[in-house]
């Protein structure tokens, strides 16, 4: 028994250290979000002052709303375009198939900053004013490849004979798509949607270039707040988002476990 503990000890110590590295910054922010003092790192007593300020900050809530709207539309459009692309990439033989596949991969690997400036140049050439539409087009563009990859890898696990059987039974492409592909693919499409939504809501770099004065989104609002210096309100915001994500994860885990 003792030797078993000794065998696992180094590994568990190491894992603990890395997890501490991941979580300590967040835990510290949560603790300081309840601190009375504004500048000091010393504990000045418990207070909910920063939460009150956070909930009273209307600009911030507008930015949250903008981010959610943008994320919703970007993820939905990216899911539709990306899923169609993945299905055709998988099912059809056509000229330029390798090229299309290659372009999707290159788009994933393109550094955000290069995508940001190139879209900025595009929008200023075709005179699309910077704001909601420029952000939406940019977000759809960087989400599409992630949907394609997610849906494509799911399709690769299908039994090919399903399509042949459907065809033999007289189904055309649209019917196959509606009756076979969509019902089998929706978990992957949903995963693609969720991935796109998170990418969109969290993106700083690309949005930074294509944003306009009329439509402020949350990450850029946070960026401008953070650059101005230490603001305990941000600690409160971080705690709220962290607790919300934790709740979502727990709910989804419980929901998934209940299903057989």
């Amino acid at each position: 028994m003792k030797s078993k503990i000794m065998q696992y000890l180094p590994a568990s110590l190491y894992l603990t250290l890395i997890y501490l590295f991941f979580y300590i910054p967040i835990i510290i922010l949560i603790i300081y979000s309840f601190n009375k003092a504004q500048y000091s790192l010393l504990w000045h007593g418990f207070s909910l002052r920063w939460y009150e300020e956070l909930f009273a900050d209307t600009d911030l809530w507008i930015a949250v709303w903008h981010s959610l709207v943008l994320g919703f539309f970007a993820a939905t459009a990216a899911m539709c375009i990306g899923s169609l692309a993945a299905v055709s990439l998988y099912r059809y033989a056509f000229k330029g198939r390798q090229l299309l596949y290659g372009m999707v991969f290159i788009l994933i690997l393109t550094p955000d900053i290069v995508m940001g400036i190139s879209l900025l140049i595009l929008f200023s050439f075709v005179k699309i004013s910077l704001g909601f539409w420029s952000l939406l087009l940019a977000h759809i563009t960087f989400c599409i490849p992630f949907v394609v990859v997610t849906v494509y890898s799911r399709m690769a696990s299908f039994d090919e004979y399903i399509f042949e059987a459907a065809k033999d039974l007289g189904a055309n492409d649209v019917l196959i798509f509606r009756r076979i592909i969509i019902p089998l693919l929706w978990p992957a499409m949903l995963a693609g949607w969720l991935l796109s939504f998170t990418l969109s809501v969290d993106d700083v770099i690309i949005s930074y270039f294509v944003t306009g004065p009329g439509f402020e989104i949350l990450p850029l609002k946070i960026y401008s707040m953070v650059r101005l210096g230490v603001k305990p309100e941000i600690n409160a915001l971080c705690s709220v988002t962290f607790v919300l994500t934790l709740l979502l994860v727990i709910i989804s885990q419980v929901a998934l476990r209940k299903k057989p």
Binding site: I81, L84, A85, Y92, F94, M103, L107, L122, L137, A138
Partner: peptide
């Protein structure tokens, strides 16, 4: 072929306008 051409043209047009063209402009 309708579905095939529709989905392929959507993705190609999107990639050409929002990925290839911007890079050429840069």
């Amino acid at each position: 072929n309708g579905l095939k051409y529709f989905s392929l043209s959507v993705i190609w047009i999107w990639l050409i306008i929002f990925a290839l063209l911007p890079f050429l402009l840069v």
